[in-house]
Simulated assay, not measured.
Amino acid sequence: MPQSRPLSLITGASAGIGAAFARELAARGHDLVLTARRTERLEALAEELRGKHHCQVTVLPADLADPAAPQQLQQALAERKLAVDWLINNAGYGLPGTFEANAWEDHAAFIQVLMTAPTELAWRVLPGMRERGYGRIVNVASLAGHVPGTAGHTLYGASKAYMIKFSQSLALENRHLGVHVCALCPGFTWSEFHDVTGTRELMNQMPRFMWQTAEDVVREGCDAAERGDIVRVTGRVNRFIKSLVKLMPDRMGLWLSARESRRYRHAAPQ
């Protein structure tokens, strides 16, 4: 069983799905460790949650593009004698444009944040979870990891497919020890994600029924992690899309992907 108040470490907690996880888990009685690059936002969120839910919130600013960040976070937790019960690997962003249009340094940072850092953080907190016989790891993946790749945002779907497969293997290795691992796969979610990537105007062309709120995504994710679901695609529309794509021949799926990329992927070929 977890500590009297489970402790959740949330990456990318300053906005969007990460901030929604912080609010939801605080409401469920968790203490929190919040990490992201934007210290002021983290401190404001921490103050809000302490006042509303009377929980302990520790702010540890970090840039996961720095390869040293996961180990530094682990050291900071150890110094404070904090044991992580829930790890929410949420930090992420999009890198618009085609593969050759971006510098390798940008691709390398992207891979570090979306693949290497969450994998290392799981490796660092897992031994404690196994020893205590309780743990929850939620890897925020995406519907993009289930559907064919797109022209533009070249590494995004690939990174999310990796997180899904990684979660599946990690879940099978640890489920007999009380550790649940879940790949959470939202589709289009209302947040500042598309503002940061400069694709908000394109995204606004998508039908409203395609979108979910971050709060809805997070509630599904928390419930799925508690149940022991290994993969959770959020929202009926997204689950329908995933099922439909699985039934399609690869050639048809890629044709549809190429057609739709022109609508919502920045710098995709016309």
Rank of each mutant, 00 (worst) to 15 (best):
R262G: 06
V147L: 14
E226H: 02
A15T: 10
T58W: 05
W190I: 04
R208L: 13
G178A: 10
A117C: 06
D85Y: 10
W123M: 12
I137S: 08
R80P: 01
M203F: 15
D223C: 05
G29P: 11
L9V: 02
L256W: 00
G178Q: 10
A103V: 09
T98V: 04
F110H: 07
L184R: 04
C185M: 02
P186G: 08
G145L: 09
A144V: 02
A225I: 04
A161D: 04
L202R: 15
G198W: 09
A108Y: 11
M129I: 10
N139G: 08
E43T: 14
D223V: 03
V59D: 04
H146S: 03
R23D: 06
M1F: 00
T58Y: 06
A108H: 14
A108T: 13
R259N: 01
N102C: 05
S167D: 11
E260T: 12
L73D: 13
Q71E: 15
Y134A: 03
L64T: 01
H180T: 14
E43Q: 15
Y93C: 10
E40K: 02
L114C: 07
L184V: 00
D63T: 02
A171T: 06
V179G: 08
L155M: 15
R251N: 04
A44H: 00
A68Q: 14
A36N: 13
W104E: 13
M203W: 15
L184T: 06
S261A: 15
A183I: 09
L9K: 12
G135F: 01
R251I: 03
K52C: 10
P186T: 11
S159H: 04
Y264D: 00
L60I: 04
P249M: 00
N204V: 09
A69W: 09
A26S: 13
R265Y: 15
R136Q: 03
L143G: 10
E79G: 01
A151T: 08
P70Y: 03
E192G: 04
D106A: 15
R23A: 09
Q212K: 12
L202V: 07
N102V: 02
E105K: 13
R124M: 03
M203G: 15
V84R: 05
I17R: 10
G198E: 11
A268E: 09
R124K: 05
A117M: 01
G97C: 05
A44C: 03
G29W: 02
F240N: 14
D250V: 08
F110E: 02
E215M: 05
T116D: 00
T116I: 02
W86I: 06
F110I: 07
Q74F: 10
E260V: 12
N204F: 11
A13P: 11
E220T: 11
M248Q: 07
H176I: 08
D31P: 05
A171I: 08
A171M: 12
R124Y: 11
A101C: 06
P6T: 09
R37P: 06
V245W: 12
I241T: 03
G221F: 13
G235A: 01
D66C: 00
R227M: 01
V57A: 13
R38F: 07
P269Q: 07
V147G: 08
D66T: 12
V218I: 00
P207C: 09
M206P: 10
G94L: 10
D66N: 01
Q205M: 07
A20N: 01
R208Y: 01
